[in-house]
Design a protein around this nucleic acid. Structure first.
Lengths: 193, 193
DNA sequence: ATAAATAGACAGACCTGTCTGTATTGCGAA
DNA sequence: TTCGCAATACAGACAGGTCTGTCTATTTAT
């Protein structure tokens, strides 16, 4: 049986397909018809699970947040075998991400740009996600240098965000090296006081 | 008379209107009909000057680059009365921008996100613009500390780009203070060697 | 049989781009 | 000055396609 919490096979396929297409081509560029065609699902099945496209967008963003956190967790663990500096692991994972096929930046940055209206649920979720993400990053900085972290963590966050948009626009992952170098130096300087 | 190189009143109105609407609501969210209505221009007048929407988008980006450079020039001159540190002037101008009404981030970042396809003329122009902008910024850093600039200028660029997206997503100009603090410290450290 | 998913037509709006026809304007020639 | 000419812009209908969202009716699986 797959009815109560199996979350419905059709629903899962819609979510995965929409996530892929939205990320790759943009929220506005991808229509419902395209999603149901590639998901192999009837239109009514989609609208049963997601009453409107805005609802679907929000669900996709939530789904993606889980996937992003999972990605960083496993990628950092993989790099964690070589060094115990978790901040270094983070930048190694970030580089993996930039170099992954189909990389098109941060879905939450992109959503905030495409949605334009800051009151849109998707834009608000993006804002909340960025706060959570920054919180994780600040945790890594604090793990490195303790108390002084609050002084540099926000700047490290800006370096990461800047590296993401720059990598997208320039079509190259090089920015991550710049960000890592600057961030590690900043953190080292702040920790040595 | 207003015929030969007056660049056509209608063309100018289309460009200004499209620039405003595209920036405020997004390239895909704004249609041709909306532009001609608000510009008070006939559809054929628009298509005479800009054969397609993609052509219009590209023209708007070029137009905006001029406006952006003008803005920074005058804003920096205004702040230049108090300090001769041009890098500080730049961050003061950046803050003015973030606080200006209707601020919605960098049109070139936004265009790169919305266009998705990196081969689109608009995406390529955005990429080229960012290189030019980074060149200007690097010039300011070099003016501060000379040779060592090449080591820190790219990171300063990332801080600026990160501050822009963060200000948009968070709906607050605060990120500019973080970026300025980190950038000035980085530059000072690099200069003192 | 009941619940869920299927296929696909449909409405109504909006999209880009084309087309026709009219009004306005400046300018050289009569 | 007055006429006609050419360029420009105007208004708006139109074609052909796509968009979101609704609806009906059929199929499948439990």
């Amino acid at each position: 049986m797959e009815q109560p919490k199996a979350a419905s096979e059709a629903r899962r396929r819609v979510l995965e397909t929409a996530d892929r297409l939205f990320y790759q081509e943009g929220l506005r560029a991808v229509g419902i018809d395209r999603i149901i065609a590639e998901a192999g699902v009837a239109k009514m099945s989609l609208y049963k699970h997601f009453p409107s496209k805005d609802d679907l967008i929000l669900a996709v963003l939530k789904y993606r947040e889980e996937k992003v956190l999972e990605f960083f967790q496993t990628a950092m663990e993989r790099h964690g075998k070589r060094t115990k500096d978790h901040l270094r692991c983070f930048f190694a994972a970030l580089k993996d991400w930039f170099e992954s096929p189909g990389f098109r930046g941060c879905a939450f940055q992109n959503a905030a740009v495409e949605l334009a209206d800051p009151s849109h649920a998707g834009a608000q979720f993006a804002k909340a996600h960025k706060r959570r993400f920054q919180g994780l990053l600040a945790g890594l900085v604090e793990e490195s240098i303790g108390k002084g972290a609050a002084k540099v963590a926000p700047a490290v966050g800006l370096l990461v965000e800047g590296a993401i948009v720059t990598a997208v626009i320039q079509g190259s992952p090089d920015a991550v090296d710049v960000a890592r170098g600057a961030a590690l130096k900043m953190v080292a300087d702040a920790g040595g006081e």
